[in-house]
Design a protein around this nucleic acid. Structure first.
Lengths: 351, 351
DNA sequence: GTGAAAGCGCTAACAG
DNA sequence: CTGTTAGCGCTTTCAC
């Protein structure tokens, strides 16, 4: 009889074929120390021959550990979140864990549903970027969580890992200032988003500390997309006030939209208007000029999230907030304010 | 006693609290028909009050259905695959299924490891883009599989869904020809990749059928990335032969690299050289000029993959090969061959 | 309608 | 070192 068509072999089958008991087989397969070399070899041989494959469901049910981790992000198709997911994935499979990935689409109901699914799947924990601060679904999640993004302060009881926005904003603003742009216009995200509030506050504080009135910075807002950024930039240019010479966008996609809007308006970037982004997505390099931006360590956020989660498993209830440094990525979208000619800025090795 | 800190309630707890037996509780929870209205109500109430949550591990172990599906793609951080993943995700959660996502990085060993993990997790099936045609790990996967990408012919026994490359290539080549570009240069991917062979063959056939000698098309190759595309385009321009006037890249990332290379070389796109991409990633719109490209239905490939997988569960062993249409996405990277001035092509409503 | 009993495949105590 | 005995939490007969 060929057993190809039968259901996959269990540990019992292996044990029987190897002439040992279930438990000895189990021990051999999990490379436990206390097994006779002969038994081990025979078990392993049979397992290989029959194509035996551990049933993780049974194992998890019994042992209480599933080796599965949840990841809930706004949108896996968004390059920034995709990068985060990749980092999480790499670190997870380094630990032999599997990742259940969900996109919430910034929808609280979806988020809640996904969290429930994760709970039912009995994942060991989850990494999530909460939709907004109204989401109560997180408060009673009941499983270890590591927050990613700008949510640390909203949920101080949960571990979190994100980029150091304050440091990143300072980096951007200082660099802009060094080029003579002391009052860049701001392209912000939607009001209800945590990330926006945080960005705004950090900019505010930074301005105050430099004796700049934050209220004097022109502001426009929109969704975190190229299209909305393009529109927002259009509105900014249409304003009656003094002409915009530089823009700091809260997100690269919007910044790219801004560059496109400039082209639409017949303005040159960076000669007429400098554009600075925030995120560091690869696509920023495709624009013309290449987008200079404050890069967040997206992939590292993902890997760090997993590390924090697995670590917190060991030392229970030790929440930590990690902030990873941002770094300036210089491409060509910034020029000195005093420049009039079409000179490209190259500050790589300058002071 | 507050039971907050205890482990989560089981169906036994609920049953006890509701004053019924395990099985009645189970029936009520799974909304089976044969339960007294009173019992059902009480069970549901208790379940809600205690925060009972089905243990999927136990359920799956017993019932043999896990409601989990695997997705193995080369790289979740690649915009094309991210889009596919998003489609799969949406469709999966529409069916109440969860997705285990893995990136193989075009590495056969990783692919094999991931497939094994999926098998052990007892997923219902998997959607995978095979690393290469050497990968034997797929042949003895043992679970329902739907292939995505250009792998249908290598594994005729497996269901598959992909874009209709032949149709897409025809679309691109015909459009190019209509602009006077009858012998575009080709920017191809790595030799060992299935997708490349397929692309090449389709171009070949198409040329033959139009009395064009395929061997006369200039060719360069490289990895499917912006950097490698840029390099490959540089090599193409450096060739001694007749000057290149148009390029058909096998992938958008390479095409964007080509546009960048043109800029490097001081050539204008599309006036000096037209560039056509293949994929339809959003980032193509960020380049200057915007990348005209043959768009693949990435998200639909993902959703269709899930549909095929879940369907094949019902009618066992009915493999199907689905080819989804590509569509031309016109942006600004194509110009007529005879054009000399910097005119942008706008064919939207032309014949 | 309902309950009792028998496992799904595995691991974790226990004895030998 | 090894086998036996219990379950993990649920679904699923099968009687009542």
């Amino acid at each position: 009889m060929i057993d190809r068509k039968k259901r996959s072999p269990t540990i019992m089958d292996v044990a029987a074929a190897a002439g040992v008991s279930k438990s000895t087989a189990a021990r051999a397969l999990s490379s436990a120390p206390n097994v006779a070399e002969g038994s081990r070899r025979r078990v392993l041989e049979v397992a290989l021959a029959t194509g035996y494959e551990t049933n993780h469901l049974a194992r998890s049910l019994r042992s209480g550990k599933t080796g599965m981790i949840g990841l809930v992000i706004p949108d896996i198709a968004n390059p920034f979140w995709a990068e985060v997911a990749r980092g999480a994935q790499d670190e997870a499979s380094r630990c032999g864990a599997s990742l259940l990935v969900f996109s919430s689409d910034w929808n609280p109901d979806r988020e809640a549903a996904h969290l429930r699914a994760l709970r039912q799947a009995r994942v060991e924990g989850a990494i999530v970027n909460p939709v907004d601060d109204g989401s109560a679904s997180l408060d009673n999640f009941g499983l270890p969580v590591v927050l990613i993004g700008s949510s640390a302060e909203r949920f101080p009881d949960q571990s979190s890992v994100g980029s150091d926005i304050a440091q990143g904003v300072a980096l951007g603003l200082d660099h802009l200032a060094s080029l003579g742009h002391h009052r860049p216009a701001l392209l912000l995200g939607p009001r209800n988003r945590l990330a926006r509030a945080r960005f705004v506050r950090v900019v505010h504080d930074h301005c105050i500390s430099r004796d700049i009135d934050p209220a004097t910075l022109p502001v426009e807002e929109g969704g975190y997309t190229v299209d909305e950024g393009r529109l927002a930039m259009g509105r900014l240019l249409a304003k009656q006030d003094q002409p915009v010479r530089s823009v700091f966008a809260a997100n690269d996609l919007m910044a790219i939209g801004a560059i496109l809007a400039l082209r639409d308006a017949g303005l040159r970037c960076p000669e007429d208007v400098s554009v600075l982004g925030f995120d560091g997505i690869p696509a920023g390099a495709y624009a013309d000029p290449g987008l200079t931006t404050v890069g967040k360590p997206a992939r590292a956020i993902g890997t760090e999230g997993i590390k924090l989660l697995t670590k917190s498993g060991a030392e229970t209830a030790v929440q930590r907030h990690t902030f990873l440094d941002c770094a300036l990525i210089e491409r060509g979208s910034l020029a000195g304010l005093d420049d009039t000619g079409p000179r490209r800025v190259r500050v790589s090795h300058a002071a």
